[in-house]
């Protein structure tokens, strides 16, 4: 099997998780799926670079994280905090009470700087270990844990202690 076929079939299986990660990074459904599209295109174009002994999910997640950084740079608002009304649409459906909760969470996530938000997305949403996140982000493990602690403190402050 060509590596491009292996990558393509791996991506099919990975697609739901990739969409979840993208949603956690980008917030908006449309932004997240645009990000997924870029990631799929890049992963397919670079499939020759993937070594079958490396975990495909980490390789693809790293592409996603870098693509999202590129997108933020292109928008020129890496430090920009989304206006509250922009933070909606994170999850497509649900009751009104649930929607209000989602909006509150979306706003809290939008408060996070990108390097905090990506740690939340990788560790808390995708379930990567500290070590895996550190390798993916190319930072020391201590940086991952300190970003995570600060991100949690920000979220907790915004959401209240009952989260």
């Amino acid at each position: 099997m060509h590596s491009s076929d292996a990558v393509r079939e791996g991506l099919i299986a990975l697609l739901p998780r990739l969409r979840r990660l993208a949603r956690a990074l980008a917030g908006q459904v449309a932004d997240a799926d645009d990000l997924v599209q870029v990631v799929l295109e890049r992963a397919l174009a670079r499939s020759a670079q993937w070594r079958p002994d490396a975990a495909l999910d980490k390789w693809v997640f790293a592409i996603a994280r870098n693509a999202w950084r590129d997108e933020l740079r292109a928008r020129g608002r890496e430090q920009h905090l989304f206006a509250p009304e922009e933070a909606g649409g994170m999850v497509a459906d649900g009751s009104e009470a649930r929607h209000a909760q989602q909006m509150e969470l979306a706003q809290a996530l939008a408060m996070l700087p990108p390097d905090h938000r990506e740690v939340v997305a990788l560790v808390l949403v995708e379930g990567l270990s500290y070590d895996e996140a550190a390798v993916l982000l190319e930072v020391p493990v201590g940086t991952v844990t300190s970003r995570l602690a600060r991100a949690r403190a920000t979220l907790q402050a915004h959401l209240g202690n009952d989260a």
Partner: peptide, 9 residues
């Protein structure tokens, strides 16, 4: 907090 994030995503 973790549970709320998972429930959202």
């Amino acid at each position: 907090l973790d549970a709320r994030l998972r429930a959202a995503f």
